[in-house]
Amino acid sequence: MKKIEPVNLIFAVLGGLVLLFIVGPLFSMLIASSPNEIFETTKDTEVQNSIWLTLFTSMGATIVFSIFAIPLSYLLARKNFYLKRLIIGIIDIPVVIPHSAAGIAILGFISRDSVIGKTASCFGLNLIGHPIGISLAMAFVSIPFLLNAARDGFSSVPVRLEKAALNLGASPIRVFLTISLPLAWRNIISGLIMMFARGMSEFGAVIIVAYHPMITPVLIYERFGAFGLKYARPVSIIFIAVCLIFFILLRLLSKNRKDA
């Protein structure tokens, strides 16, 4: 039998502890709630509405912001321009700042005193406490995932293929739509799902912009504050299950990225 290197054994034990740290709390939460409690909670309309709201607002944020983010990613991957490094740095800011602080920033940005807030008021919209406000808060914290994944995707497309397409008489926009975008698509899909999943799980920024209507992370917090751990647990389990579905989807879609 092949002898195991001691160093590999030590690394495996250390790694196992990390995995346990991730899986342990989730598993203990799962076994602490009875299937009946979970089943009953799935029938709770407040829970159902919050999950639908979370899915809808995060999906909306992802779709709308992708229209702006994908072209920017392409520019960042393909062109060299003044202040490019600064822009790349700015893109990562939402990842490093506290999300409650991000929420405060968004709140100021969309409040009734701001230009955006005033413009929305003209259409009878108050963005604070509105699904659009929630989407904006979600997008703020999750858009770096899409931008960076799409930029990686476009960078991995050989420039020669784009040049070949231009040489074959295609306009730059046709080259983008028929060559660059399809070849970067797996990375972009990964980025979209990651942005969507990250938006769904956002709490800090959203609770400042909109306590009501409640997205699921806020509902979990509210149930915990008002009724305690026992009532917060089933909602958490259901929401984690929803998140896991998207996480698995992400993994499946990005599995063959290298083959693209």
């Binding site: 020669r160 293929l161 040049k163 070949a164 231009l166 040489n167 060559i179």
Partner: peptide, 19 residues
């Protein structure tokens, strides 16, 4: 512009669109 030159280049690495 490249797309209006009417010269066709066959690249050394072919640059055939893989998708």
């Amino acid at each position: 512009k490249i797309q209006k030159r009417k010269v066709g280049l066959v690249f050394q690495d072919y640059a055939v669109f893989p998708h």
